[in-house]
């Protein structure tokens, strides 16, 4: 999927950020950040709290003026300063940017009108969105009565209301219980499947790995690495560890696998084979086929790969989470 997305798509990017820089006083919150998002792509900005993710998003959404750099948004050269450009943009901010003393529907209608959705259409869209975020039966209640998860869902719903070309989600799962979190992640996946381009910021590497086609790792305002998950994992230079357990001709299998494509090293006792593999996901199928061919009945496979946590540690010398 990843390769297909980034490789074959020749349509112009929905967002292209170039050399974005913003300082508050002497502190450089964002320092020369560049990246692109293609239509339908889910792009993740991964970094610890305070890395400059929200500042970057604020500039993309037009809330902050960059000190330097260029933002091209949905075909508009001057980016979010053009009001028409902002109509193509949906923002789900990290804070619950909703009025607690308005109902869910009133919140939706307010932002829908600001987006310029005609009234009739707006009524339909509000119903659709309320349905999608599962708040139809509570749409007339003041949002201050809502649970945390319901507020988060409404927060996302407002960003979707006007059917933007690019949806920016700024840490949408912070402070959310596991159940709601999963619901949010699932709906993000669904949006991606529908072909919506997403910019997703998080400091949870599992979320980035699960959702994003490509990821930019940011630290202290700078983009320190960018690529698909696999590309990023390769940066560490660490290979994957694969262990196969089973019965039958285990020793023969060990020998054959030692010569197999992608395998760096192989060792085994009578029941388990430990392999060091350059790219386990690519080669796993052929490895299993080799073992079977040599007469081993594999009962258990364990793949252990380095994760983005290791990548971040490798790049910055610090842990992703404080």
């Amino acid at each position: 999927m990843t390769a297909a997305m980034s490789g074959s798509n020749t349509a112009p990017p929905v967002l292209s950020v170039n050399g974005l820089t913003k300082a508050f006083g002497s502190r450089r919150a964002v320092d020369d950040v560049s990246f692109e998002i293609s239509p339908g792509e889910t792009y993740g900005l991964l970094g610890p709290n305070g890395a400059g993710k929200t500042t970057t998003i604020s500039m993309i959404a037009g809330l902050l003026k960059p000190d330097s750099g260029h933002i091209r948004l949905c075909g508009f050269e001057d980016g979010p300063t053009r009001r028409e450009a902002r109509a193509h943009l949906g923002l789900v901010p990290q804070d619950l940017a909703i009025y607690p003393d308005l109902t869910a529907r009133e919140n939706l209608v307010l932002f829908g009108r600001l987006q310029g959705i005609p009234r009739r259409r707006l009524r339909e869209r509000a119903d659709e969105v309320l349905d999608v975020i599962g708040l139809s039966d509570r749409s007339g209640d003041l949002t201050k009565e809502y649970s945390g998860g319901m507020k988060r869902r409404l927060n996302i719903g407002i960003g979707l209301l006007h059917q933007p070309d690019l949806l920016i989600l700024d840490e949408p799962t912070v402070g959310v219980d596991p159940q709601s979190r999963n619901a949010i992640l699932e709906s993000v996946e669904a949006l991606s499947r529908e072909g919506l381009a997403l910019l997703y910021t998080t400091h949870y590497m599992e979320e980035a790995e699960r959702l994003c086609d490509r990821i930019g790792i940011v630290d202290q305002g700078s983009m320190v690495a960018e690529g698909t998950v696999d590309e990023l994992l390769r940066i560490t230079g660490e290979a994957d560890a694969v262990s196969l357990s089973g019965s039958g001709s285990v020793l023969e299998a060990t020998r054959a696998l030692g010569k197999a494509n992608g395998v760096v090293a192989a060792s085994g006792d009578g029941t388990t084979i430990s392999l060091t593999v350059a790219d386990a996901p690519t080669h796993l199928a052929s490895l299993l086929a080799t073992a079977a061919r040599e007469g081993m009945a594999v009962t258990d496979v364990d793949v252990s790969r380095p994760d983005l946590e290791d990548v971040f540690l490798h790049l910055t010398g610090r842990a992703l989470r404080d």
């Binding site: 604020s58 959404a61 037009g62 809330l63 979010p80 009001r83 028409e84 902002r86 109509a87 943009l89 923002l91 901010p93 804070d95 619950l96 940017a97 909703i98 009025y99 607690p100 932002f111 600001l114 987006q115 310029g116 407002i158």
Partner: peptide
């Protein structure tokens, strides 16, 4: 309060001045 709630900021990301 609207600014504290970040609603103002959100409103300004819509196509209004």
């Amino acid at each position: 309060q609207s600014r504290e709630l970040r609603v103002t900021q959100r409103e300004l990301t819509t196509p209004i001045s």
